[in-house]
Design a protein around this nucleic acid. Structure first.
Lengths: 182, 182
DNA sequence: ACCGAACAGTTCAGTCACCGAACTTCGGGG
DNA sequence: CCCCGAAGTTCGGTGACTGAACTGTTCGGT
């Protein structure tokens, strides 16, 4: 859908994946989900995305099964489903390519395996334990190439405070009380 | 560039990668490069992409350093640079996600490690030799989910003829004589 | 019960990327 | 010299994305 009008005459899984994910903002919304962002207002503040587009992306991702919309006591929450979780290798690979070729001042984000306290290689491999950790086993922190002057929304501020475990609530306030830690 | 107007207010390597690769058709053009497609007419026939858009994507990818434009004796050739080659993990991961979640009749394409004659896992891992082969060491063939009725351009026909080594000329004719095999 | 604020959207006019078709340019081959 | 194919460019029309304003619902406080 969208962004032109689909790739219906392609018999290729990449084309189908891009029909689901290739519209503007879609992969950045999912990246934020891995960072633990769950609420409309936080996606909006962190991405500077038009509200109408964000609403459409969240609706489309929910309809396709990558996200789940849940009415929580303190607002609406969007959570990654199993389908959405399995996008981690693709998102990580794309980001690593960006780090390698488009980050002249060094890595903007560094990912480490929480169990081993070891930084991941660009392949996603943990050199200490030899495994390929899933997103739930990873920490992110800022690297030397990060530019702290660019953003000051509360999501960026929270991620700047120190290493943060993916998929968990990044906020010190009890925003997601009851679900924090998972 | 393009597709809206960039993600300039994001300090994130994924956002930068998507500025370079996120426009419509860009990743499919690169996929075709991995399949060994090199000439304008073949991209055009295989993708059903508007000529103006294809011209723009090739120019942009060349300017960014992912492709190299070379005037060959029998026409203009577009070849992956080292930067372009390193997109293989990202393209493979996205395609595998599409195979897993958007291919109800099974895999459309199967990749195998040429040295080991072993099919790759979804992670890109070769279970026989334990390595993560680069694109130049891989073969593609059609899987059970492929739909042979959908396309009949000469690129699709060539890929249908049997296992094909990535990055090499898919055509039996001496189109790329002198560069075939690499 | 009333008020205001916050959240999660929807609506809408304007712009720009993409689409498809027609046109141009260049280099052989006959 | 003419014709053809490859590799583009040009151009009018459409629709996705943008930014700003507006709606509706649910809190918390008084």
């Amino acid at each position: 859908m969208g962004l032109g009008r689909g790739y219906s005459r392609q018999d290729c899984s990449l084309a189908h994946a891009l029909e689901a994910l290739g519209e503007r903002w879609t992969l950045l919304v999912l990246r934020d989900c891995f960072y633990g962002v769950r609420q409309f207002k936080d996606f909006q503040a962190h991405l500077d995305i038009p509200r109408a587009v964000l609403a459409d992306r969240l609706k489309t991702l929910t309809a396709r099964g990558a996200l789940e919309r849940r009415e929580h006591s303190n607002g609406v929450h969007y959570l990654l489903t199993e389908q959405g979780m399995e996008l981690w290798p693709a998102i990580f690979s794309l980001a690593q390519w960006g780090e390698r070729w488009l980050s002249p001042h060094g890595s903007r984000r560094v990912f480490s395996h929480a169990d081993c306290d070891t930084d991941l290689e660009a392949t996603g491999h943990c050199p200490t334990c030899g495994a390929f950790p899933g997103p739930g086993e990873l920490l992110v922190r800022e690297g030397p190439g990060a530019d702290p002057t660019l953003r000051d929304d509360r999501v960026s501020a929270a991620l700047r405070r120190g290493p943060h475990r993916l998929l968990t609530n990044p906020f010190p306030e009890p925003d997601y009380a009851g679900t924090a830690g998972v």
